[in-house]
Design a protein around this nucleic acid. Structure first.
Lengths: 232, 232
DNA sequence: CCAAAAGTGTTCAGCTTACACCCATGA
DNA sequence: TCATGGGTGTAAGCTGAACACTTTTGG
């Protein structure tokens, strides 16, 4: 494979799509660029991979530097390698995503000044992004839509304690369709990965809903799903 | 993202896992390397991406140069970027897979002499591969196992006309388990992507089976599968 | 006529869907 | 007391799994 018959200046980078859920909306974290090219444009948090780090490590470091978010586990989902995707030269980028619990912050503080700021933007309301980041986002969004359909990963987006209605809203936003309340509850509870708490919602002017927690121990059960034709 | 604060000599390559089905076995195409490092080791067909081509284009070109196979559509599945995966320097590789119809050839002729030869090897019988290719293979194999469970991609591996038993054998080999004949046939026919031919198997010393063809037009129906909670 | 594989249906269990009303709460 | 969302069950249809015998063919 890599006997390096042709060398050229090449760069690889990592870009991150960080999903959050807030005010009933699915959002992603964008930075406002402080450097050319695309200065002052919004972009996915991303930067160049160093020589001494794996791409996974780079993704984590880059996210930290650009947004202050630390120790976020991300999943690689696609590598973008069109010749002209970066105006300054050949840059191949490996794209990652993660879903995280928003803690109310609207704006995060970049560590480097390569980014002016990092902000949460609703996916329904995204501006045109720098480079091919709009395309990267599109592919990443497809990926999580697909993934949420067979793995209950949505919990990562919710506060630690949540109501079933909040969970359903989240599914509805991601899948972009209305779901049946009774069927949704039945199915979610049947998964047996929710722990019912003794607590209730507070501060609402209607009947308070029960709070639930995600039960991590039982979760692993849902990491294999195969088609089968009977008789194992 | 890519403001290139740190430059270093970096290379990216593409590696291909080409699956074939022959003599009742699932095989992949390996090259025997003719260059250091790992000279005379078996490896996945792979090489360096050129400056002027996208990674997808590179993968196709590389496969052609190393095996003579032309115009094979491959799907990217993962990018491997550990720091020390290549002994001669930092090389990030983008891995692809494809499933193809074997036409009986056991050995393919490389166009370049970077590979001595290209041979089909049963996945049950793989030697230790150069670089981290064993790991790449493992991940690719998982991927197709998973994919075949929700998309009928197995046809690409079979001859144009095939019997249901051949199709079932292929599924059994890939999924590594026995399937129920009646249920398998019921399900496959229910997909409605098989065209029954007027022809029968020849040259067997038992009841000849009907031959089928894959019906491409009807196939597209199976490119979306979502979890649902009722009420679309 | 024998060996080998082709071909074929039914039953049961569990899951998915559709659907509507009463309940608890705070204002 | 009213407005708001919380919470609940059932019937019908579909899908997946288990299971065994007869048919065809060539040798």
């Amino acid at each position: 494979m890599e006997n390096i018959p042709v060398r050229f200046e090449s760069i690889f980078s990592a870009d991150c799509i960080i999903f959050g859920f807030d005010e009933g909306e699915l959002k992603i974290l964008l930075i406002e660029r402080n450097e050319e090219p695309f200065k002052e444009w919004f972009a996915l948090p991303g930067n160049v991979v160093y020589q001494s780090e794996s791409i996974d490590e780079a993704a984590e470091r880059i996210l930290y530097e650009l947004t202050g978010l630390k120790g976020i586990y991300m999943e690689q989902f696609y590598t973008f390698g069109e010749v002209n995707r970066h105006p300054k030269g050949r840059v191949i980028t490996v794209a990652y995503f993660a879903m995280i619990r928003l803690n109310g912050q609207k704006e995060l503080k970049p560590i480097t000044n390569y980014a002016k700021k990092a902000v949460w933007v609703s996916v329904k309301d995204l501006p045109k992004l720098a480079f091919d980041h709009s395309e990267i986002f599109k592919k990443g969004f497809e990926k999580i839509k697909n993934k949420i359909s067979y793995q209950p990963i949505a919990f990562e987006l919710l506060p630690e304690k949540f109501t079933l209605t909040q969970l359903q809203n989240l599914y509805e936003v991601i899948l972009n369709k209305k779901l049946d309340k009774r069927n949704f509850r039945k199915k979610m509870l049947a998964y047996d990965i929710l722990k019912e708490l003794d607590e209730k919602q507070k501060g609402v002017s209607y009947r308070a809903a029960k709070l639930y927690k995600f039960d991590k121990r039982k979760y692993s059960k849902y990491f294999h799903n195969e088609l089968s034709f009977g008789k194992e």
